[in-house]
């Protein structure tokens, strides 16, 4: 059936978009965790005093 192409395309694009969403959520999570880790390493706190008087 010539319609196979359309079916395949529909499933393919669905897979790509959904996989892309999942990937975005996972990668974004890693990026935020990394940024958070970096900031904590530099001694920056969300509340309260900063550590020491050192400028970075």
């Amino acid at each position: 059936m010539s319609h196979i192409g359309f079916i395949a395309a529909a499933y393919a694009i669905t897979a790509i978009v959904l996989a892309g969403l999942v990937a975005w959520v996972i990668v974004d999570g890693r990026i935020q965790q990394a940024a958070l880790g970096e900031l904590e390493r530099r001694g920056i706190r969300r509340t309260g005093r900063q550590r020491g008087g050192e400028a970075t």
Binding site: V25, I26, D28, G29, Q32, Q33, A35, L36, L39, R42, I44, R45, R46, Q50, A55, T56
Partner: peptide
Amino acid sequence: AAMRNEILRRRVRAMRVKAASTLVP
């Protein structure tokens, strides 16, 4: 998962803002 990321993103932003405002030479 996206909500978790958004919460983290806002924490990061708040910390960066705080860092930028307090790092006065």
